[in-house]
């Protein structure tokens, strides 16, 4: 028992090192001055970060990325939340169809999807190929599985169908029951899937590059472009970028954790299923990131 614990610790330790060394290396490189033939840099400097944060292009790219993400995630919440709610509560026999549709994006590689999208939208009635709008569309689809899973499992966890039944019997209209008893109980679940989607889109490159590329320079494309210039600068960008994603993930984890500590459930069984659901949530999220 004890030896197997040490064994586990060693494995985890190795894994953490394997994951962290490149990151630490990149970080050191981003603050290194001269670093040729020593193990650690000979001198340190913040010049690269200063250069990065003084570059107008960086801010523009960041702003564009933010715009894309806010638009696609916002659109997704506004469209998917009522859709999933209505289907689970009132048309449960269509649930299978919705689920299949929501999972479809998993089956299409971004490259294939991008080529198809460019073909379809470069002529015909909707000519949006090369504009940010096509990217927003593609991103909407990319995050569909997360939004779907997140929202649906939140609804399941609180047993939304029964809450709506109870509220309606007490005289609430359908909309009132959604607003007063369903929405407040799933808001933190929605926040988690939203933030996960944001983190995912932040690191999305294939669609961004293929669909708009240099015409609408996002942070990803900016990064790719800078890869060819100074290595130090690139490292600084990577670290900045990584910190932002880390921050986002941290918020997600914190929210999830807070929910688990203070569950909205009313009995033990519910808490258990809540944990399970949350666990599934994370799983799908991780799968999606691969």
């Amino acid at each position: 028992m004890k030896s197997s614990l040490t064994f586990h610790k060693v494995i985890v330790g190795l894994l953490v090192m394997y994951l962290l060394i490149p990151l630490v290396g990149t970080f050191l490189f981003s603050i290194a001055g001269k670093w040729d033939h020593t193990i650690l840099p000979e001198s340190y400097t913040m010049d690269w970060y200063i250069e990065l944060f003084q570059d107008e292009r960086f801010y523009d790219a960041f702003r564009r990325t933010l715009f894309l993400i806010v638009m696609s995630v916002g659109l997704s919440v506004v469209i998917m939340l009522p859709t999933i709610f209505i289907i689970t509560v009132y048309f449960s026999k269509w649930e299978g169809l919705l689920q299949a549709a929501a999972m479809l994006p998993y089956g299409i590689p971004p490259i294939v999807g991008a080529v198809g999208l460019i073909k379809v939208y470069s002529d015909g009635p909707i000519q949006i190929a090369g504009t940010p709008w096509i990217l927003i569309g593609a991103y909407f689809i990319t995050i569909l599985p997360f939004m779907y899973q997140g929202i649906r499992s939140s609804l399941r966890t609180i047993n939304a169908v029964q809450l709506v039944d109870a509220a309606e019997l007490l005289g609430a209209t359908k909309f009132q029951s959604f607003r007063t008893v369903v929405f407040p109980n799933i808001i933190s679940g929605i926040l988690v899937s939203t933030l996960l989607s944001v983190a995912l889109l932040f690191s999305e490159f294939a669609f961004a590059n293929l669909l708009v590329g240099g015409r609408f320079e996002t942070i990803q494309i900016y990064l790719a472009d800078k890869l060819n210039s100074s290595g130090h600068l690139t490292s600084a960008i990577v670290i900045t970028y990584y910190s932002m994603i880390l921050l986002l993930t941290g918020i997600v984890l914190k929210l999830t954790f807070r929910n688990e500590k203070n569950p909205v459930g009313s009995n033990k069984k519910r808490i258990l299923s809540f944990f399970k659901k949350k666990y599934c949530n994370k799983n799908t999220a991780i799968e999606g990131e691969k």
């Binding site: 609180i158 047993n159 029964q162 039944d165 109870a166 019997l169 209209t173 407040p184 009313s266």
Partner: peptide, 20 residues
């Protein structure tokens, strides 16, 4: 519709509103 019937119901799992 349920809201017009003036019928009260207690569910097996109570269905209390967790946020209230």
């Amino acid at each position: 519709s349920p809201r017009q019937r003036e019928v009260g119901m207690v569910f097996q799992s109570y269905a209390l509103f967790p946020n209230m």
